[in-house]
């Protein structure tokens, strides 16, 4: 990280955000050595969804008895796609029981982008359904004999918004990471039967520490909306870290899209794993 500076919003006044260089290096996050054994298993499983239904999920875990912390991943608007499978395995590689439920399951099966298009046309997944799905996945993780009893929540894009929503409306998560979730702040005109309450209005109920990663060039959410969200978190004395990356927009982790920003993504992943390690613990 030589060329970018990051505003750590949570430590400074909003009008005078601090600029600092990230301290963690990518090396510090990998505790593996070339002479260590490493293994994982990753497969599609069936888990319970909202309302007692069954949905499919992608589950990846390190081999071994654990105990391991868990992470539930909420996929992004483009669907339950390859990037989310890879990211699920990435969490397992870092020592987490990781499950990514297919919250688009009720909309039918097919190529991820085609299912996502159907969901888009339908106006999205109802917030209540998502909360139910993720709560069930949390129960699944914590029921596993390898669980250390702690679990985090991760999501990007619409999944980032849903991370915050779920972290406010459920209990049992120990840390949550919202990556550029748009529409946490919503106008009254944006509210629908599926999205009846703006997530920001649940802030007082946030049940665990929150990490937010955002891009300064993003329009969904805008930096102003992120600041508004932060004001609300401060108002209720919540534990959080927000980082606003310059020269990055929406989805800067996505190596397969034009939005990818290498330096910001590497730093963001480092911050994310440091955050989870702090609140969830690992077996390393």
């Amino acid at each position: 990280m030589k060329n970018i500076k990051i505003r750590r919003l949570s430590k400074e006044k909003l009008n005078k955000p601090a600029l600092h260089r990230p301290q963690a290096s990518i090396e510090s996050m990998h505790k593996y050595r070339t002479d260590m054994y490493e293994g994982m298993i990753a497969e599609t499983v069936v888990v319970r969804g909202h309302g007692g239904t069954n949905i499919n999920a992608y589950f990846a875990r390190p081999l071994g008895p654990g105990p391991f912390p868990g992470v539930v991943l909420i996929h992004h608007a483009p669907g339950w796609d390859e990037w989310y499978r890879e990211t699920t395995r990435k969490f397992a590689h870092h020592g987490y029981l990781a499950v990514s439920p297919n919250i688009y399951y009720p909309f039918g099966q097919g190529a991820p982008e085609d299912v996502a298009a159907k969901v888009r046309a339908a106006g999205g997944v109802p917030d209540d359904d998502v909360v139910g799905d993720i709560a069930e996945s949390l129960s699944y993780l914590k029921s596993l004999p390898q669980s250390n009893g702690k679990a985090g929540l991760f999501g990007t894009c619409s999944g980032g918004r849903q991370v915050f929503l779920v972290a406010c409306r459920t209990k049992g998560f120990d840390a949550a990471v919202d990556c550029w979730g748009g529409r946490v702040v919503m106008s009254k005109q944006e509210l629908t039967a599926k999205y009846p309450v703006a997530p920001i209005d649940y802030t007082k109920d946030l049940s665990c520490p929150l990490l937010g990663l955002f891009g300064e060039e993003d329009q969904f959410p805008t930096p102003q909306q992120v600041e508004q969200h932060e004001q609300e978190l401060k108002k209720y004395g919540k534990t959080y870290e927000f980082h606003m990356y310059p020269k990055a927009g929406h989805g800067f982790f996505y190596y397969d899209r034009a939005a990818y920003r290498q330096e910001q993504a590497v730093d963001g992943w480092n911050k994310l794993f440091a955050f989870f390690e702090k609140y969830l613990g690992t077996t390393d």
Binding site: P78, E113, A117, R120, E217, G249, G251, R257, A258
Partner: peptide, 15 residues
């Protein structure tokens, strides 16, 4: 919204 493939930050997506 944000496109899957087009090299643009935002796009009109028609399905």
């Amino acid at each position: 919204d944000h496109p899957d493939h087009a090299q643009s930050g935002r796009a009109i997506i028609i399905d």
